[in-house]
Design a protein around this nucleic acid. Structure first.
Lengths: 251, 251
DNA sequence: GATTGTCTTGACTAAATAGTCAAACCATAA
DNA sequence: TTATGGTTTGACTATTTAGTCAAGACAATC
């Protein structure tokens, strides 16, 4: 009758997320997740039939979290190039500061099973793949079914045939900027990759960079908080011909 | 009598490297490594007593490979700031193009066991840690013994007490550049991290970026080959006040 | 208080996997 | 040919781990 369901389910998911992010799919132990959720392993299996299903639920949510800022780039066509960049860096650095373990986890699992990406990304961002979007992949459908309700904000159906490059609008703006002379010559794709790299890598390379720069946990976090501003400075300097189009207030 | 030793040992290491890079420590199976080396699991254990020991041998070599370009930055104090940057990006992109799986592997294992970094890095680059360098850690000495001879190029002993920040020389040069007005205002540490990020991340985020930019394997590789030049362009533009100090030949 | 349906768990099973061992193998040198 | 010593392996053990199950706890309704 009652639904302590959600309470426990949420606790389990949180615990599972911690453990999966810490150890990856292969390294995670169901017992460890159960311990961290303060329940028995049997209970864990009561809520999530299998490790695979539990993992899928966590990963699906995480990749969504990771991709949303990227999606933000192409949504909202009204944004100017500069505010698009500002928005992206801002929201991405924010997301990552809240979830420092996210990037490495995502990259790890994506690398060991790249196939997974296609179905999950298509699900989150319809029309990413060039192939006609015929409603998800259908390969391992019927797997999830657990937390499948809150995708209401991304209901941009309209399976436009096969030319919706995810970053087309962004790239177009850069090309326009170059044509008008406001922007330096750059390869737009390389520029975008650089932007993503500068935001994401510091979270992936944390242990290494901490040693190289001799920072403890607190110092490294502060360093990352300051980083948003610095990245923006770099990106605008790379892109724009005249120094500082606006916002000259540093420090 | 005979020493097919080396032959087999090398084959095993290569196989182990492939498998470990593909699946990480936790995901790797001794059987899989044995199969890939075309020997039995028992033989595998004959050469390397345990999975741990095998892993250590592989990881030690890999982290060395990964760190050498970084070390290159501080070595050779004669390099100018600009050529230091050029050298770094060039050699790093080269190393990574030859070993695309390296960065994710390193970051993965470093994250799940950050402690390991300190001993291995100190071993490769004496004086990284602030602590007095008293000749390695001594913790798990006598483990390797395999590839311990070609460290002749790093004989910068002189355990200078406790102030050898790894990147001090580099940072100093940037500060000098800023003082003289040749360089923009930047946070040297943030700049260095950006440089590393732009080189390394594309290899870690490969599967994701491939989808975002809709590139197949060949296209992505070409993209990465072209990237060295583009990164240099960006870095110099970030750093130097007057556009293009030299080398104006693009494309 | 008995009934019902949901949760919870200790104890179990089955499969996977690291590591061992004794016997066989094979090249070389006496 | 035989002895020797490194190499190889099939078959085994011990341990870990995902997943199951039947019995019980618990809360709400009758």
């Amino acid at each position: 009758m009652q639904k302590k369901d959600l309470q426990s389910e949420q606790l389990i998911l949180k615990a599972a997320r911690r453990v999966f992010q810490r150890s990856g799919y292969g390294g995670a132990r169901m017992q460890e997740i159960a311990d961290e959720a303060h329940i028995s392993k049997a209970s864990l299996h009561y809520y999530y039939r299998s490790k695979d299903k539990l993992f899928h639920t966590v990963f699906r949510e995480d990749i969504r979290l990771f991709l949303i800022p990227l999606i933000g780039i192409l949504r909202d066509p009204s944004l100017s190039l500069e505010s698009r960049i500002r928005t992206f860096v801002g929201s991405y650095m924010n997301t990552l500061l809240e979830n420092p373990g996210l990037p490495l986890f995502i990259m790890q699992e994506l690398s060991s099973n790249p196939q997974r990406l296609i179905s999950l990304v298509e699900e989150t961002v319809p029309g990413v793949e060039g192939r006609p979007v015929d409603g998800y992949t259908g390969s391992d459908a019927s797997v999830g079914g657990v937390s499948n309700r809150e995708s209401s904000d991304s209901t941009s159906k309209e399976a436009n045939v096969d030319e919706i490059p995810l970053l087309a609008a962004f790239i177009r703006q850069i090309e326009d900027g170059m044509a008008s002379g406001r922007c330096h010559k750059v390869d737009p794709e390389q520029f975008i990759l650089s932007m993503i790299s500068m935001c994401v890598f510091p979270f992936i390379g944390r242990p290494l960079i901490k040693v190289l720069l001799k920072k403890d946990e607190q110092q490294y976090r502060d360093f990352l908080v300051r980083r948003e501003e610095e990245i923006l400075l770099y990106l605008l300097r790379i892109l724009y011909t005249n120094d500082k189009p606006k916002d000259n207030s540093r420090h």
